[in-house]
């Protein structure tokens, strides 16, 4: 009996429109990712309550790279022999830059600072219990330009 489940609980939703789950301070509205609890990191705020909130599914690449050598444990390789994968730091409209692996089939040649990407959920590794999933950034093939957006990505 195997199943598919997130590699870490509560950090992202799954389904057709997956999203990262952040913590929004109910006092000052600062939003944090990964999810946080206990105290707000805004030094001007003593808030202690947070509401789970889905972050924007699209953002722009802040920078990117790849892992051409297999990272050491606790990284769990997905294949043997090892296959390199790309990584991207993505700036969300919320003002947070979030790291993530890049979606299967895409490498650094598909990326540029400022390029629009979208969040997807894919398999990180498999264990006895089944597939463990993670959020990933996927380049947007035909960016939907919002009417208010006039700035093109700096390629």
């Amino acid at each position: 009996m195997t199943d598919t489940s997130p590699a870490i609980d509560g950090w992202f939703t799954t389904g057709p429109e997956p999203a990262l789950v952040g913590s929004r301070c109910t006092t000052c509205a600062s939003t944090f990712f990964p999810p946080t609890a206990g105290f707000c990191r805004n030094p001007a705020c003593d808030g202690q309550e947070f509401a789970a909130t889905e972050l924007s599914r699209r953002g722009r690449v802040w920078s990117y790279t790849d892992a051409q050598y297999q990272p050491p444990p606790p990284y769990i390789p997905r294949s043997d022999p090892y296959e390199p994968f790309a990584l991207a730091a993505v700036e969300l409209p919320e003002g947070i830059v979030v790291l993530g692996q890049v979606a299967d089939g895409y490498g650094v040649a598909d990326l540029a600072v400022g390029r629009e990407v979208e969040l997807v959920v894919e398999t990180l590794y498999a264990d006895e219990a089944g597939e463990r999933t993670i959020w990933r950034w996927k380049p947007v093939e035909n960016p939907v330009v919002e009417p208010v957006e006039t700035e093109e990505a700096d390629q």
Binding site: T65, P71, F85, L87, L99, A112, I134, D154
Partner: peptide
């Protein structure tokens, strides 16, 4: 490491790549 396979050189590479693109 566990969730991203993000090593130290990968962080250095992010800064380096920004210099190239910007």
């Amino acid at each position: 490491f566990r969730l991203l396979g993000m090593t130290n050189p990968a962080y250095f590479a992010l800064y380096a790549r920004r210099r190239m693109d910007l």
